[in-house]
């Protein structure tokens, strides 16, 4: 189970693939071009397949899935 999703703001380079793959979970700040979690909310379990896909879709692997077993 993934417990927590984190975006590495240093690595994130504004590719926006996560916003396309999981639009309810991720968005991109129009000024900094850095991705963030929508409403600062951790995704619920139902969104996890999309979140995992988004993590793979990130060219710089800035999305971390923590607590996976």
């Amino acid at each position: 189970m993934t417990r927590r999703v984190e975006i590495d703001r240093e690595l994130c380079n504004g590719y926006g693939n996560c916003v396309v793959t999981a639009p309810d979970v991720f968005d991109i700040d129009p000024d900094s071009n850095i991705a963030y979690l929508v409403d600062d909310q951790q995704p619920d379990e139902a969104a996890m397949p999309e979140v995992r896909e988004a993590a793979d879709d990130c060219p710089v692997r800035a999305i971390r899935l923590l607590g996976s077993v």
Partner: peptide
């Protein structure tokens, strides 16, 4: 980037 994410 914000615009393109929406356009896609």
């Amino acid at each position: 980037q914000w615009h393109v994410a929406r356009l896609r």
